[in-house]
Amino acid sequence: MENSGPMQSFCTWLLVLYQMSIHHLAVVHENAKIGAHVTIGPFAVIGEHVSIGDGCEISPHVVIDGWTEIGAGCKFLTGAIIGSPPQDLKYKGEETRVVIGNNCVFREYVTINRGTVGGGGITRLGNNCLLMAYSHVAHDCQIGNHVIFANSAAPGGHVVVEDFAMIGGLVGIHQFVRIGAHSIVGGCSGIPQDVPPYMMVVGDRAKVYGLNSVGLKRRNFSEESIKALHKAHRILFRSKLSIKHAVEQVKAEIQGCAEVDYLIAFIEQSQRGICRGASKEK
């Protein structure tokens, strides 16, 4: 005879409890959804509307609140605060969210704010991201996959960071900026404009200083693509041409390379303008 009703519910509850390890000093709301094999350390606080995927590890003194959805295999180290209200004066307590993918690591005292109604309502992070100590993700940011934030990196609201981008320590990113895929932002930089994909930028008002050749090789980009990107870099960021004329020259001289096509499309779609290099030809 199959179990049903209260007995089945009780058995299901026992099974879920057995699959979790929640310290008796943790505060977990009864309505929170906790996956299998999740560990929650002492003095951690898990709010009512939180959903945590299988295999996550929640260290002591972590706070996960708000309408927050977390995928499987994520790790939150001491003091991380996830899903707190946005630092936006227009926010009036609306039901907005943080959505985090799988296998992300959030080091000590990372903070992530949920979205705002005006920004689409969701702050989103993809899979396999690493956010080092004290880094901050503001409201409505859209962070891709395999993104790394070094210590105290801080994108403002509505920032887009594409896949495999690396943000150095103590970097401040202006609201609504886009950080292109496979790019690197050097430490202590200020980013007021979009960072083109595949490039390295650095500076108080950051400028492009090279192609991320090492990163592209590590990610198995072809020699032909890297060579084409080098040529596009010289035209776009090391010539005396205006950005409009540089783009036209790249289109005329480099064809059939998907990476260069994406670089040009990124530049043409930019709303804030792009970080550029020195005007002197090299």
Results as ranks from 00 to 15, higher is better:
48 E>I: 02
163 D>A: 01
245 H>T: 08
59 S>M: 06
97 R>Q: 05
267 I>P: 12
282 K>G: 03
52 I>D: 09
17 L>W: 10
62 V>S: 08
133 A>D: 11
212 N>M: 05
263 L>I: 05
91 Y>N: 10
43 F>P: 11
103 N>Y: 14
92 K>Y: 08
241 L>Y: 09
80 A>N: 13
281 E>F: 09
120 G>C: 03
156 G>N: 05
79 G>R: 11
190 G>T: 02
249 Q>Y: 08
165 A>K: 03
277 G>V: 02
144 G>D: 07
267 I>R: 09
260 V>D: 15
140 D>P: 00
57 E>M: 06
195 V>K: 12
210 G>T: 09
10 F>I: 06
278 A>P: 00
102 N>Q: 10
73 G>N: 11
125 L>Y: 05
261 D>P: 07
256 G>T: 09
198 Y>T: 06
137 V>N: 02
251 K>V: 02
191 I>C: 10
18 Y>E: 12
161 V>S: 03
120 G>I: 03
94 E>S: 11
46 I>N: 14
15 L>M: 15
218 R>A: 00
7 M>Q: 15
236 L>R: 13
85 P>C: 08
273 G>Y: 10
7 M>P: 14
52 I>Y: 07
221 F>H: 12
107 R>M: 01
83 G>P: 13
174 H>G: 07
191 I>G: 08
270 S>V: 03
16 V>C: 05
123 T>N: 03
126 G>Q: 10
64 I>C: 07
37 H>M: 09
23 H>F: 04
246 A>D: 05
234 R>F: 02
95 E>I: 01
230 H>S: 07
64 I>W: 14
108 E>F: 00
111 T>I: 06
64 I>Y: 14
140 D>S: 02
136 H>I: 01
75 K>P: 01
194 D>T: 06
237 F>C: 05
176 F>L: 01
176 F>M: 02
